[in-house]
Design a protein around this nucleic acid. Structure first.
Length: 192
DNA sequence: GTATCGATTAGC
DNA sequence: CTAATCGATACA
């Protein structure tokens, strides 16, 4: 998913960004996952079929966007943590109210705000739209993929399930953790 | 029923 | 470092 384009036409405006940072959440095997304690009205989309958007509301003010990845019944999803703005910049700037373009879509709350996504978009089919991942080769700009612990969680810190494009200016991360991580080999399975 | 805490962010 | 701000969750 890293390096591909995420496109959103919700709200009548087209906004597009390159995926530069993600985190994996592994359902009932993962104490950091919203699905760890089973199915609830909030997380039900995570338990549904893959290729759908799980959009949740948190901290009383932010939304975050996930791509549901595993077969129905297995609540695995990938959180979109940061995008490199590619299109729809005026719309994204207006929604975000920020002046610095590198920060338009840096951080999961910022991504949802820039794309105009809320709980109303929870469960969107990523084939039908209005949100989808462009079917194009992943362009990583020559950057290597790094991985490290996920951000903003208390349990599950032993898993290096955060992935990002090394050195990319649009990668988020709570303060000091932005650059920590190890290189992901080009071949071979990702270890757990 | 009340208390606590977020897969966060912006500002000081 | 803290406030913001409310739904989900834990617990009496």
């Amino acid at each position: 998913m890293l390096g591909r384009e995420l496109v959103c036409t919700a709200g009548g405006r087209r906004v597009c960004g390159r995926i530069v940072e993600v985190e994996a959440y592994r359902g009932d095997a993962d104490p950091a996952s919203h699905a760890f304690r089973g199915l609830t009205p909030r997380n039900r989309v995570m338990f549904g079929p893959p290729g759908h958007a799980y959009v949740y509301f948190t901290y009383g003010m932010h939304h975050c966007v996930n791509v549901v990845c595993a077969r129905e019944g297995r609540a695995e999803a990938v959180l979109i943590r940061a995008l490199e703005p590619l299109a729809g910049l005026p719309t994204a700037r207006r929604r975000r109210g920020t002046r610095e373009d590198a920060r338009l879509m840096r951080g999961p709350g910022c991504v949802a705000q820039a794309l105009g996504l809320t709980r109303a978009h929870d469960g969107l089919d990523l084939v039908a739209g209005p949100l989808w991942i462009a079917d194009s080769p992943a362009r990583r700009g020559g950057r290597v993929v790094r991985r490290g612990p996920r951000v903003g969680i208390r349990a599950g810190l032993e898993h290096a399930w955060r992935f990002w494009l090394d050195g990319h200016p649009c990668v988020s991360g709570a303060r000091s953790v932005r650059a920590t991580g190890v290189r992901v080999p080009r071949s071979g399975a990702i270890p757990r």
